[in-house]
């Protein structure tokens, strides 16, 4: 049943998402050539048109990112908060499966959107010249060299830096999920269905994250103090790159863990509300 639910959840967003993805990918080629024109410093109308193209590409990228995330959130809203909830909750599907399907489709849309943006950037950078090759090859070479250098200097901590990027992504996804849960929570928890309060939901997510931050900071500061002043990493003198990397990594881990704990709590709360306390008036 999860497969079927997921199929319909993704199908509901597929058309708009596909059109936007195609537009972004087409624009990545056009934008790549536009950036190439700017790099080659051509004059006149071509230069003006190139600036316009790059601007449109930039705006489209932002719109696409927002839409990619927004479509998943909208699916939560549509299924749980509009009259479509009458269909959602009368389907012969376990409520848990319904919630899982919405969560998965939101995550898939989010990850796919990020993937398309990365592909678009790769396309653009492969067109833009840099020295004898393209900007892509230069970027890949410099990233490779940077990683090698970092590994030589910091060893294990290079892996930690890479992990930070992954954690940041997970953190962004958990923020999206939190937003979705806050929508679902307000749907099923209320005695009567209230109108969508995007502002209130955003404020809730923001407050939760500020709260997590407030809880994280003192703990991280304490650990950082211990690390630095006890030379726990056996590096004497000033704060080394390895030490600062460790502290940043620790902060992110703490922040993400708290975000995940809150998400798990909200997930359980949502599930209880749609299974045992549903009030669709």
């Amino acid at each position: 049943m999860l497969k079927k639910c997921l199929k319909y959840d993704l199908k509901a967003s597929l058309l708009i998402w596909s059109i936007l993805s195609a537009a972004v990918l087409v624009m990545s080629t056009v934008g790549g050539f536009a950036i190439k024109t700017l790099v080659l410093e051509l004059d006149g109308i071509v230069f003006g048109a190139s600036i316009l193209c790059v601007f449109v590409y930039y705006i489209l990228g932002i719109v696409y990112l927002i839409a990619g995330i927004g479509l998943g959130i909208y699916r939560f809203y549509q299924s749980f908060r509009t009259d479509e909830a009458y269909l959602t909750f009368t389907l012969p599907v376990k409520r848990k499966t319904l919630l899982h399907s919405k969560m998965l489709s939101t995550a898939i849309l989010f990850i796919s959107t990020i993937a398309v943006i990365l592909i678009a950037l790769i396309i653009s950078f492969s067109i833009v010249p840099d020295g004898e090759g393209s900007m892509l090859s230069s970027a890949l070479t410099s990233i490779g060299d940077g990683l090698k250098e970092s590994y030589m200097a910091n060893g294990f901590w290079t892996v930690v830096y890479i992990a930070q990027g992954v954690i940041l992504g997970a953190l962004a996804l958990s923020a999206v999920m939190l937003f979705c849960f806050s929508i679902a929570m307000r749907t099923s928890g209320n005695k009567t269905r209230s109108k969508l309060g995007i502002g209130k939901n955003l404020a809730l997510v923001f407050l939760v994250y500020v709260g997590i931050g407030a809880m994280t900071v003192p703990i991280v500061l304490l650990i950082a103090t211990i690390v630095i002043y006890t030379d726990a990493l056996a590096i004497a003198g000033t704060v080394s790159q390895a030490e600062s990397g460790f502290i940043i990594f620790l902060s992110l881990i703490m922040f993400t863990m708290l975000a995940v704990i809150i998400n798990v709590f909200l997930y359980k709360d949502n599930l209880a509300k749609i299974t045992r306390k549903l009030n669709l008036t």
Partner: peptide, 14 residues
């Protein structure tokens, strides 16, 4: 829900 077929008083399809 497998046994019940419900028609609400409002339009509920996408």
């Amino acid at each position: 829900n497998l046994l019940i077929s419900f028609l609400p008083e409002r339009t509920y399809f996408d």
